[in-house]
């Protein structure tokens, strides 16, 4: 059985008539990195909340179809079971600070205190995660006195330290400056390379194209495409749904029109593929 299985999922937020997600089917295997792309309001966050159990437990509303995440069924288990298996990091770094801790070190330990982990083990785990997320230099600072990028890495560390089986990331860099984004992407890449199962809503398609195993494209709550980055991002219908395409694809499209792109070659989605295409035409 796949680690995440959604069958025929339809979800309505409370007091709404049109579904935020409609007839969605999705299977994600252990160790896979799935990216979710879609225009504003397409349902990316809604899907992230569903996989992390906040839908239906926190948001209420109507959930139809079946959901199984790491063996948990939200109709049988509470949010508590979800948060022990699925870690959620979202857009606004500032709002993810617990608010009850005065240093970054204590902030990261907050989740472990709530899980009832023994203090000695707690310190080991916090030290380890601080190293992995490269925030050793921040550990004695106040979590509020950090830049957005630093806060987001602290948020990631605070979730990772709880050792979730699945990491759900909802546009974790959309509110960060380029340097902050770089730092956060680096940590995510490290986690992906270590074989963690990652679900990530993200609009920076160049990055997604390079690191995701598969991409799910959403539009108005429905899945319009699911496949490898090349299959999804190279597909011509994406812009119709208001989904940004990789700038390498854009270049190649223009080049194709001008007769500067090898006809048989598919549309590139990463820099490397783009360079290869041009090398071929020049040769």
């Amino acid at each position: 059985m796949a680690l995440i299985e959604l069958k025929n999922l339809t979800y309505h937020y409370p007091l709404t008539n049109s579904p935020a997600l409609q007839d969605l089917d999705l299977e994600v295997q252990e160790g896979e990195f799935l990216a979710i792309v879609g225009a504003n309001g397409a349902g990316k966050s809604t899907l992230c909340y569903t996989i992390s159990g906040f839908i239906p437990h926190f948001f209420k509303g109507e959930l139809a179809g079946s959901v199984s995440v790491a063996g948990i069924d939200p109709t049988k288990a509470g949010l508590g079971e979800f948060v022990q298996k699925v870690g959620l990091v979202f857009q606004n770094p500032f709002n993810q600070i617990s608010g009850s801790k005065f240093t970054v070190y204590e902030e990261i330990a907050f989740g472990l205190e709530n899980l009832g982990i023994d203090p000695a083990e707690m310190r080991e785990r916090v030290d380890e995660i601080i190293r992995l997320t490269r925030i050793e230099d921040l550990k004695d600072r106040s979590p509020y006195a950090l830049s957005g990028g630093q806060q987001q890495r602290v948020a990631l560390a605070s979730i990772l330290v709880m050792r979730p089986q699945i990491l759900v990331l909802d546009e974790p860099t959309s509110q960060l400056d380029p340097i902050g984004s770089q730092e956060v992407f680096q940590v995510i890449k490290d986690m992906a390379l270590q074989g963690m199962t990652i679900i990530m809503a993200e609009h920076k398609v160049e990055w997604v194209a390079e690191f995701a195993d598969r991409i799910l494209a959403l539009s108005a709550g429905q899945a319009i495409k699911l496949g490898t980055p090349r299959e999804v991002l190279g597909s011509p219908e994406l812009p119709e749904h208001g989904i940004g395409i990789s700038r390498y694809t854009q270049v190649a499209r223009k080049a194709l029109q001008a007769g500067l792109w090898p006809e048989k070659r598919s549309m590139p989605v990463t820099l490397d593929e783009c360079v290869q295409g041009f090398q071929e035409i020049i040769a």
Partner: peptide, 26 residues
């Protein structure tokens, strides 16, 4: 406006999990 997201954030950190909490600082 921040309240809703902060509630999600502390839930995600297992704050309302009904287990006996431990403390980092002795």
């Amino acid at each position: 406006v921040d309240v809703e997201e902060r509630a999600i954030a502390i839930e995600a950190r297992a704050f309302t999990l009904p287990v006996k909490k431990t403390s980092l600082i002795d």
